[in-house]
Design a protein around this nucleic acid. Structure first.
Lengths: 253, 253
DNA sequence: CAGTGGTCTAGACCACCGA
DNA sequence: CGGTGGTCTAGACCACTGG
């Protein structure tokens, strides 16, 4: 077994207080991102790694279990642990769902936004709950009508805790760009989606008859520390928008 | 702490050779399916449970970790472990490739199928294209009405190359089970979904008015060697289904 | 405050794989 | 055969939640 500077004791001992298995996960992900570890590369055995890093094997296994669940590593009993081969497309962390902007840009379609609301407001009970607001906290509302080729495609209603983004007018086109400038990058999100019939008001905005089918999505985005940064509800025209997802076989069960 | 016959030592000691944490998972899932455990019910503490079952706390935690990942349980630090509340809609994971039947069972929902079509047929041009069929190849059609609690939930139309599954009658309840028996396990799939208004025929099958909103999905599943094994189009009732996705943002961008 | 889940340790035995 | 991952144990300390 070689020294493998990637997995030196120091790389995990310092760096502030954080669970060891999370530090190890980050170590592996960064090494892959930087090319130090390539596709199908072998990772040292769990016992070796534990010894090298000065932690217990159980902790190594916990980190590896997460990384396998995320599709970053693959494990073969009796053989070893390896960097998962890429399936053709970029998929650094994993399971990505294409977003409005990305998807449209991919198709070479230029998109525009009309602001329906861009204000500071008192939160609704739902916003308070989802954004984990304290009493008295305010929210920023960013409601937009998304258009492409002059045709309305979607209504997007985002709420952000006021303390994260004091001025709603700071958001010009991309909410995520505005957040990133402030060092508030969402790293994880949960999205729920289902089909609904459009209300009269939303149907008018999208230029459709009342009751037309639409894809309704609710997304909650989180920062690295687990705080909720964004709550967005969107209505996509059923006839104009496709969501695409890549599914992987569940590893554990 | 009460005795809770659900979690008696005997329930996990016998029952053949299998990992203890898998036995415990099954125990919890079955209890929810049978109504012994209901929504939001508290599960005994990890230490209590370990003592009651005569296993270690780490093993209990491993089982619980899986169940939390599957959305069956929720855990709150300092508070306890609880049966995940049902959200009114059935939640389907968008990033994991799962069997409908198994996924519903995991949530304690018993499902039934009415066959609409189960035959060998000549492929449509679309089927030929998607399944990469050679001229003369036939397909198996498996069209089903999915029901739960007597209520129609979804229409599912699967096409499988005839050479993979000679006899359509071999599929009793789970298509994936039938495929797996033949060593044909899908490992990856691409799924497209959008909102549609139901046609008269489909609306009738689902017991809804014509034009009701539904989630339409098209899924193409692949074997490890990249061959297409399955092409499935489904219509899910808009009022009964949530698709849930966990999104990760690329580290670089 | 007592009880909870979250993390971590240092062992152990097993089934499997490849040389 | 030795090395691998897969499972399991019996402890321990921490941060958090609730009454």
């Amino acid at each position: 077994m070689s020294t493998l500077p990637v997995f030196e004791r120091a790389r995990i001992a310092d760096g502030g207080p954080a669970p060891l298995y999370l530090k190890l996960k980050r170590l592996v992900i960064d090494a892959i991102a930087q090319g130090t570890l390539a596709d199908r590369d072998a990772i040292p055995g769990e016992r070796d790694l534990a010894r090298m890093l000065g932690i217990s094997r159980v902790t190594v296994r916990k980190a590896f279990a997460d990384l396998v669940a995320d599709g970053v590593l693959v494990q073969r009993r009796g053989s070893g642990t390896f960097v998962a081969p890429k399936t053709g497309r970029i998929q650094l962390p994993l399971s990505r769902l294409t977003s409005f902007t990305e998807d449209m840009r991919l198709r070479g379609i230029e998109t525009f936004s009309d602001w329906l609301d861009r204000s500071v407001a008192l939160p609704t009970p739902e916003e308070s709950l989802v954004l984990a607001l304290s009493p008295g906290d305010k929210v920023i509302r960013l409601h937009r009508l998304r258009r492409a080729d002059g045709k309305p495609l979607a209504i997007e209603r985002s709420s952000i805790p006021h303390r994260f983004l004091p001025d709603p007018m700071a958001v010009e086109t991309s909410l995520y760009a505005a957040l990133t400038e402030r060092g508030l990058k969402p790293v994880r999100a949960l999205q729920r989606l289902h089909a609904v019939a459009l209300s009269k008001g939303d149907a008018d905005l999208l230029g459709l008859p009342e009751g037309s089918p639409a894809l309704f999505t609710e997304r909650v985005a989180y920062l690295t520390d687990g705080r909720v940064i964004e709550f967005t509800r969107s209505h996509y025209r059923g006839d104009s928008y496709d969501f695409v997802a890549e599914l992987h076989l569940a590893a554990g069960s």
